[in-house]
Design a protein around this nucleic acid. Sequence first.
DNA 1: CTAAACCTACCCCAAATGGGGTATTGTTTG
DNA 2: CAAACAATACCCCATTTGGGGTAGGTTTAG
Lengths: 206, 206
Amino acid sequence: MIKIAIVEDNKIFREALIQLINAQSNMHLVGEFASAEYAVKEIPHILPDIVIADIEMNGMNGIEMITILKHTIPAIEFLVCTIHDNTDMVFDALRAGACGYILKDSGSESIIKSIIELYNGGAPMSPFIAKKVISEFSRPKQNNFHDLLTEREIEILQYTAKGLLNKEIASLLFLSNETVKSHLRNIYVKLQVSNKIEALHKVGLL
Amino acid sequence: MIKIAIVEDNKIFREALIQLINAQSNMHLVGEFASAEYAVKEIPHILPDIVIADIEMNGMNGIEMITILKHTIPAIEFLVCTIHDNTDMVFDALRAGACGYILKDSGSESIIKSIIELYNGGAPMSPFIAKKVISEFSRPKQNNFHDLLTEREIEILQYTAKGLLNKEIASLLFLSNETVKSHLRNIYVKLQVSNKIEALHKVGLL
DNA sequence: CTAAACCTACCCCAAATGGGGTATTGTTTG
DNA sequence: CAAACAATACCCCATTTGGGGTAGGTTTAG
């Protein structure tokens, strides 16, 4: 039995969600709130497994609410359900601690599936949202430093980024630490910097 | 009609995938490769819509292959299909340009669904992978270091993260560079590290 | 009021890093 | 083939950093 709470200021959508949840044999609605303020006060007492949350609400918005509640009771999982697919909003919600993010135009079936996936430790997202999230990883890829630095130099920079000392890198790669130093000096010249941290900045490893 | 290529060195799994694809009325298998090297050579000529790729292969691995092919033909979408759920591997694949990442223990139905989702601009992921990806966003927020480090220490770490030398930080903050050093030493003790880069790692500034 | 924490700043010394060379060995390429 | 580049490795020396102490002044909490 999955204990669910709903925070949604739009009455029509809230009622629809309530009906949907009540129709499920393996779910139990333990709370429904029309404002984030009210939810923040009450949810710590009713301890739902999952909170379905809108973001755009009068007064406190859903992001702030999730931030507060996630901090108070980390075990609660949040499924954001909103009409907004704005990039900033998506990432703000995820940073706040939401693990699922679906759009309101998803069908009932898809909402139920998302709840179950979230309950089972997954991270349900509408395809469009998922794509946004994934793209965030490949985005800062187009660093041109692959043309500028040699393979070996990149390799050494990567170990440097992990916090290894020159001599540690040297023994990892079976080199003299003087060699590692030489590579680093060449890197500095190419990137026009003068220490490790600056170099890591330039290549986006920092 | 979705044009699909398969890169998979395990013969049994490759054959199974081929059968699965061939059974779909809306998909067309345009290539199957047992090594990444071969795939890198041929795929630019056959131009599939989607490449289903293994990662762990003899010789060139899937990450390198995706990096090369994505660079050559950005329009091709990659669906990584592997037994590995290792965190580094997941993020390496996403950075390389993969948009889907599913585990081999997903059912046939789920693989077909993933292909279609990918073709429609989504980013299909196994629930466990999706959770990893999402967690990456909420991770580097309020770590505990605000409780551990003082305001001044955080301030100095932030300047350190920008690549400034101790003495540069010192003159910025109108301090002796010995004072900056003292703060850094205290930081190192608290974070249990022994140099700047490691410290930046611990607090998520790297 | 006292203790604790924080910020400041100095001492000494060792280790690590940065900056300047040079040199040998391959490999690639015009 | 010669030139250019890459990777390796050594030299010297200055600067920076890390690790150990100590210590005075201020603010905060018990």
